[in-house]
Write a protein that binds this DNA or RNA. Structure first.
Length: 421
DNA sequence: TCTGGGGTCCTAGGACCC
DNA sequence: TCTGGGGTCCTAGGACCC
C-alpha cells in the first residue's frame, strides 16, 4: 500500500504559518515578477481565482474582496518543504519526494499497524511541528493513492485522510476523469466526448482501446485504477536529464548588452546547479523571444543549439559558447521579454575527454570552479561572478509583496509571532 | 502597461542503413 | 507498366506533471 501526503494550498499555507492573521482570509501567491497567480488559499479558490490568471486582469476583484497578495518566496517554501519531508521520514523510511509539496510513502514497512491511524498521527504531527496542513490518500497503487488524496481534500468529513480499500467503486464514481493523476485537459475533453465522466467510467474501457485512442501512459493509468501497479515507487530520484534556466524580464530588453547579461546569468545559475549535482552537459541550447501576448509590437523568436567537444560544467566555457550562439541571432529594435538556456545530455562526469584539451586546462578550470563555489557558498550567491553577467541587474525581479525569508536569513528571522515578545 | 518556471515521456514522421 | 521489407536514429510537437 502507498500513501500520498500532499500539502494543502502549499505556498499560501507557508505564508500563513508566519502571518497567522491571514487565516480565514483569501490569499494568493504570484509568479516571478508578480505576473500571474500560482497558488490560492481555499477562500480565494471560492472567489474564482485560477492558477495562471494574470494579476493585472484581477485588480478589481482583489480590491473588492480584500484579497491578500504575496510575491513568491521560494526560499521560504523550499525550507518549509524540507521540514515537512523530514517529519514524514520519522514515520516511514520509504519516502519518495515527488514534488515540493508532495511525497509518496510506502506503507508495507509499518507491518501490523493500522495505516489510516498511523497517517492521521502523521498528519497531526506535521501540522503541529511545521504549521502546514496536509491531506493524505491511501491506496494500492500510486494513482489510487492520488485519487484517495483528492477525495480527502474534497470531503471535510474524512479529516484529511482517506483510504481506497477493497471496494473502490463508490469512491471512483465521485472523481471526475479530469481529476485523475495523469489525465489532463486534452485527454479529459476527449474522454468526456467518448462518454467517460468519472474514474469509474474509465475503468470500464478496455485497456487496448485506451492505448489506441491515447497512448501507453493513459493505459497504465487506467490499469492502476484497477489496482495493478505500473508506476514504480522511486525512493532515490533518477538522475536528471535536462536542466533549464529561463525567466521573463521585468521590463522588456532591447540591447545586446542586457540580453547577453541575462543569458550569462542563466548559464551561471545552471552551471552551479550542474556542479552541485556532479553532472556535466554535452549540449547547450539558448533561446530568447519577444512577448507572446503583444498584438502591437513585432515578434521575434530565436534559438540555437551546440554540442560541446567534451561535456562540461565550467561556467566560463558555457558562457562563451552561449554568447557566441546568441549574438548573431539578436536583432535590434525588438522588445525581448524572455531569455533562457537549456543544458541537455547530462551525465555524471565520467564522459570522454577531448583529445585537444590539455590536462592543465582542465585542472585549472576545475580548481577555479571549486574556489568560485566555495566563496559563493560561504559569502553569498554572486559574491564572485563573471563580468559578462553584468552589474546592472537586468535579471532582478519585480516582487512588491514578498514576505521575509523567515527561516533562511538571519536578518529576516521573525521576532514577534502570536503576540510573544 | 502588466500573462511563471521548471520537468518527464510518447509518438509520428523523416532520414538514413541494408 | 511495374517499385520490398526490414531496421535504427533523430527531432519536433504534444501530452502530462508540479
Amino acid at each position: 500500500m502507498y500513501a500520498l501526503a500532499d500539502c494543502n494550498n502549499f505556498y499560501a499555507s507557508c505564508e500563513r504559518v508566519f502571518e497567522p492573521n491571514l487565516e480565514g482570509k483569501p490569499v494568493i501567491v504570484l509568479s516571478n515578477n508578480d505576473g500571474c497567480v500560482i497558488a490560492r488559499s481555499e477562500e480565494s479558490k471560492k472567489l474564482g481565482f485560477k492558477v495562471g490568471d494574470p494579476i493585472f486582469k484581477l485588480k478589481d476583484c482583489v480590491r473588492k474582496h480584500n484579497v491578500i497578495v504575496r510575491s513568491s518566496n521560494f526560499a521560504l517554501y523550499g525550507d518549509m518543504s524540507r521540514r515537512v519531508m523530514q517529519t514524514i521520514r520519522l514515520f516511514s523510511p520509504d519516502v519518495e519526494v515527488y514534488s515540493i509539496d508532495e511525497a509518496f510513502i510506502q506503507l508495507d514497512g509499518l507491518h501490523g499497524r493500522n495505516y489510516e491511524e498511523e497517517m492521521r498521527r502523521m498528519r497531526a504531527t506535521i501540522l503541529r511541528w511545521t504549521g502546514i496542513p496536509v491531506s493524505i490518500g491511501i491506496g494500492k497503487t500510486k494513482t489510487l493513492a492520488k485519487l484517495a488524496n483528492h477525495y480527502a481534500k474534497k470531503n471535510i468529513e474524512t479529516g484529511g485522510v482517506a483510504k481506497i480499500g477493497e471496494h473502490p467503486d463508490e469512491m471512483l464514481k465521485t472523481v471526475e476523469v479530469g481529476d485523475i493523476w495523469g489525465i489532463g485537459r486534452q485527454w479529459s475533453k476527449k474522454l468526456r466526448n467518448m462518454g467517460v465522466q468519472t474514474a469509474f467510467d474509465l475503468c470500464q474501457l478496455a485497456p487496448d482501446n485506451i492505448r489506441q485512442s491515447f497512448n501507453i501512459v493513459a493505459m497504465k493509468t487506467a490499469m492502476e485504477l484497477h489496482g495493478q501497479k505500473h508506476f514504480a515507487f522511486e525512493q532515490s530520484p533518477e538522475q536528471r536529464k535536462t536542466l533549464l534556466r529561463s525567466r521573463s524580464f521585468a521590463n522588456p530588453v532591447t540591447s545586446w548588452q542586457e540580453l547577453s547579461e541575462a543569458i550569462a546569468s542563466h548559464v551561471t545559475s545552471a552551471a552551479e546547479k550542474l556542479r552541485n549535482e556532479s553532472l556535466v552537459s554535452k549540449v547547450l541550447r539558448i533561446f530568447f523571444h519577444t512577448s507572446l501576448f503583444s498584438h502591437t509590437d513585432p515578434h521575434h523568436s530565436a534559438h540555437a543549439t551546440v554540442e560541446f567537444t567534451s561535456s562540461t560544467n565550467v561556467t566560463h566555457t558555457i558562457i562563451k559558447e552561449a554568447l557566441r550562439l546568441a549574438e548573431p541571432l539578436y536583432k535590434k529594435g525588438f522588445k525581448y521579454k524572455r531569455a533562457g538556456i537549456y543544458l541537455l545530455e547530462l551525465s555524471s562526469g565520467s564522459a570522454q575527454k577531448c583529445l585537444f584539451e590539455t590536462q592543465e586546462e582542465q585542472v585549472r578550470d576545475k580548481q577555479m570552479m571549486t574556489v568560485l563555489d566555495a566563496i559563493n557558498t560561504s559569502m553569498g550567491k554572486g559574491t564572485l561572478h563573471f563580468a559578462s553577467t553584468g552589474f546592472t541587474k537586468v535579471m532582478s525581479m519585480r516582487q512588491l509583496q514578498k514576505s521575509p525569508q523567515y527561516t533562511t536569513h538571519w536578518d529576516e528571522l521573525p521576532t514577534c509571532v502570536c503576540g510573544l515578545q
